[in-house]
């Protein structure tokens, strides 16, 4: 059971940092709040939510395979598909479990843990294909493997659309 524990722990830890129960309840709470407050036309217009941009202190182009966060990515860049390096295109669902990589940010020269969540539920976007394999592991070590279709944890199913690269935090 040790092996299972290790895999489960790695996967669960990365999952918990993104689509946790907290975020589910957060969304639920937001929905409930909205339901009790009458919607004005202006607030409906404000409901539009664009792709999340890079953080201000970053450098590089998230639509380019050379962008620093993509050091272990494999697939189509969501930045070219209606999303961004940290948001899924409209109508696609982020995978709750995925593989993680460690990439060096050239601006502060620090290593960051990057989570490569897939966006799922529509066929492959097909744009900006990018495959980089820094510290990529074989598929029998799944937590670090970019060859696996990680859409398997979604409600939408395994149909893969594109890949993101979300900063989880500095690698200690």
């Amino acid at each position: 059971m040790n092996r299972l524990d290790r895999i489960t722990e790695a996967l669960a830890r990365s999952a918990a940092r993104r689509l946790s129960r907290r975020s589910f309840f957060g969304r639920l709470g937001a929905a409930m709040t909205v339901a009790t407050v009458p919607l004005l036309p202006v607030s409906r217009a404000a409901a539009e939510r664009g792709p999340q941009p890079p953080q201000p202190q970053e450098k590089g182009d998230p639509a380019n395979c050379d962008y620093w966060r993509y050091c272990a990515i494999d697939g189509f860049l969501c930045s070219c598909c209606g999303g961004s390096m940290s948001s899924c295109p409209p109508g696609t669902e982020p995978s709750p479990i995925t593989w993680v990589g460690t990439c060096r940010n050239p601006v502060d020269n620090k290593d960051y843990v990057i989570s490569y969540n897939d966006c799922c539920g529509k066929s492959a976007c097909g744009r900006c294909e990018c495959n980089r394999n820094e510290r990529d592991t074989p598929v029998y070590q799944p937590a670090g493997s970019n060859d696996i279709n990680w859409c398997l944890g979604t409600q939408s199913g395994v149909v893969y659309n594109c890949s993101t690269a979300v900063v989880l935090g500095a690698a200690s």
Binding site: N2, R3, L4, R6, I7, V139, Y140, Q141
Partner: peptide
């Protein structure tokens, strides 16, 4: 098959798997 992946046959009734450790 906790922790172990893939199928490598070695005889008609035996195979081995590759594990994460």
């Amino acid at each position: 098959t906790p922790g172990c992946a893939l199928v490598y046959p070695v005889a008609p009734r035996r195979f081995f798997m590759q594990c994460s450790d």
